[in-house]
Design a binder for these strands. Structure first.
Length: 559
RNA sequence: GCUGCUGUAGUUCAAUGGAUAGAACAAGGGACUCCUAAGCCCUAGAUGCAGGUUCGAUUCCUGCCAGCGGCACCA
């Protein structure tokens, strides 16, 4: 990583000059600095400290940088008010390409989290409720975060957590019984849940019936068991199909029916230590002490809430996969709730303090208004995938590929995942079901299409007997080659900030640059320059493939 | 009322306190006997409002406005 080494060196130089200013090493804006690869505002930052003019400081830094003669630098210059532009040596780019080819699937990995054990918990759909596009979002984000962290050398464990007990289940069971619906049918279960929820809100007598079912669930009930088990199994089977489609597998799956009793026990014991207290018959955690709000952990009926279950889950996590860091992906609507739970966990187990964290993502909303599974106006994950797949199939009618069904699936999933991952995690996505997802321009399929082009050229090259050669005949490095060398740095940043969109944005820039190059450059031109150009193509292909993998997106050979 | 996230082009998104705020879609124009046109080239178009800090603010601070969310027995 040249960027990191450059930054270190510049910090040393600035310190030698007598300044403690902090500064960044950036990629210079396009065209502003000719062909420079890095730019730094070190001189501008240090100038005030040193009481000198920025340009003087810049010259001093350049002199010292020249003295060090870093082997990967070919040129250093001062521009504008005092920016220092650094150009990498041409060999760097051929070496980058050679490395991309030899590292293959490992190209772009880093060691920033080597030796640590990290849990990533995501997806978390609840049996008896639909898998809606919000779960699609969490699954997409969690999967990408997992892969980014894995790519940084950590040992990771993927956790999924299902709420298979609680009022929502009671509502669905009530609906199934009352309206004679079938627990073997996933759509009936969804309807039953909506019916149960409406009854719960509108009719106090029916609410009583549902509360009674809820209580019986926690104490174990022979009469409810068959219906419950069937509905639970049907829901989970449906989730499994969706994970297959999305390419996610989990190392551990934990259920609230399991964590509830554990959590309740821990909370009761901790009352003696004053961590929890009684209030109106319920057991609560006074978040106000920490600038948060009070939340109920055990209800006045004696049943554990989601909060207590989460405590039990935290304990199970330590048993199943002793970890240094836990990252739970939650939607922004659960942000405040999760802060309270994390605080309670810190108080319970001081030795693990700070290891129980979460990332918050925005919500997927319908353009018409809030989506609510309670009311039944949800878009399910599958219906969205199916709609986009239909658009992909339509598009593919013109092309002649071997397995259109599989490719339509890969393209549809790419379109959806990219739409989620191209933006900053905290932002909401307003989804308009009328307008189908774009498969052109800034989109997942655009990246796949660029990859397909590389694959196609490589196939043609093989037929023609042309081999790639990273050290073959080449001219001045192009912006495409320069871009390739950034990949490991981008991946590292995305992993550090837990922001997959950096990778998504980079891949789009790379694809765009590649497509421009492709339009103006004939690779297999029959000259001696072909083997190096082919190496570029191969390196671009490998970078796209690895980058897409980090986003959880497949790289088809044709489309 | 208190509080969290988000406000950038007509629309959907970028931009680690730096250089001329980048893309894509939509709009308008163009190129192609050549490795896949889901592509390429060109044109036009944006930082919610008011202050402050700074050599420099889309970015940090304060206030306001708008959208979405949270604020005790749902998850």
């Amino acid at each position: 990583m040249f960027k990191a080494e450059l930054h270190r060196t510049l910090e040393e130089i600035v310190a030698e000059l007598g300044s403690t200013a902090s500064f960044a090493v950036d990629y210079p804006p396009k065209d502003a600095a000719g062909f420079a690869d890095y730019a730094t505002s070190a001189a501008l930052a240090a100038a005030k400290d040193l009481g000198k003019k920025p340009l003087e400081v810049a010259e001093a830094i350049v002199t010292k940088l020249d003295e060090r003669a870093l082997p990967f630098i070919s040129e250093v210059s001062v521009a504008g008010p005092g920016f220092i532009n650094i150009t990498l040596a041409p060999e760097v780019f051929t070496e980058t390409i050679a490395r991309a080819l030899s590292d293959g699937g490992d190209w772009g990995k880093n060691v920033t989290r080597e030796g640590s054990r990290i849990i990533v918990e995501y997806s978390q759909p609840n049996p008896f409720k639909p898998f809606h596009i919000g779960h699609l979002m969490s699954t997409t984000i969690g999967e990408s975060l997992s892969r980014l962290i894995e790519y940084s050398g950590a040992t990771i464990s993927r956790f999924n957590y299902h709420g298979d007990i609680g009022p929502h289940v009671a509502k669905a069971l009530w609906g199934l019984k009352k309206h004679n619906l079938s627990a073997s049918n996933i759509d009936d279960i969804g309807r039953a849940y909506v019916l149960g929820n409406t009854a719960y809100e509108d009719d106090p007598a029916l609410k009583g019936e549902i509360d009674a079912i809820n209580k019986r669930l926690y104490t174990g009930d022979a009469e409810l068991a068959p219906l419950y088990e069937e509905g639970r199994a049907v829901s989970l089977a449906r989730f499994a199909e969706i994970y297959e489609l999305l390419g996610s597998t989990f190392d551990h799956v934990v259920f609230e029916s399991e964590t509830g009793p554990i959590g309740a026990e821990i909370v009761k014991e901790a009352m003696a230590k004053g961590i929890f207290e009684e209030s109106d018959g319920a057991t609560v955690f006074r978040g106000e002490k920490y600038g948060l709000h009070t939340r109920v952990f055990i209800t006045s009926h004696g049943t554990p809430t989601y909060e207590a279950k989460e405590i039990g889950f935290a304990k199970r996590k330590h048993e199943l996969f002793p970890f240094d860091q836990n990252i739970t992906d939650v939607a922004v609507e659960q942000d405040e709730y999760f802060k309270v739970v994390a605080k309670a966990i810190d108080e319970l187990w001081p030795k693990y303090r700070g290891s129980y964290g979460h990332v918050t993502h925005g919500m997927m909303q319908l353009s018409g208004g809030k989506m609510s599974s309670r009311k039944g106006n949800v878009i399910t994950g599958e219906s969205l995938i199916e709609d986009v797949m239909e658009a992909a199939r339509e598009r593919m009618k013109e092309s002649d590929v071997e397995n259109p069904q599989n490719i339509a699936k890969a393209v549809a999933v790419a379109g959806i995942k990219y739409a989620i991952l191209k933006q900053h995690l905290g932002k909401n996505i307003v989804f308009d079901p009328e307008k189908s997802l774009s498969l052109e321009g800034d989109s997942g399929p655009y990246l796949q299409y660029a990859y397909v082009r590389t694959a196609s050229i490589l196939r043609k090259a093989k037929e023609a007997g042309v081999a790639s050669d990273a050290h073959g005949q080449h001219g001045t490095p192009t912006s495409l080659e320069r871009l390739l060398s950034r990949f490991p740095e981008i991946v590292e940043r995305a992993a550090q900030e837990l922001e997959p969109h950096h990778v998504a944005q980079y891949l789009t820039t790379l694809s765009s640059e590649f497509n421009s190059w492709y339009a103006s450059t004939k690779v297999l031109d029959g000259t001696s320059a072909a083997s190096y150009k082919l190496a570029i193509v191969e390196a671009v292909g490998q970078t796209l493939k690895n980058g897409l993998w980090l986003l959880g997106i497949e790289s088809p050979q044709e489309m």
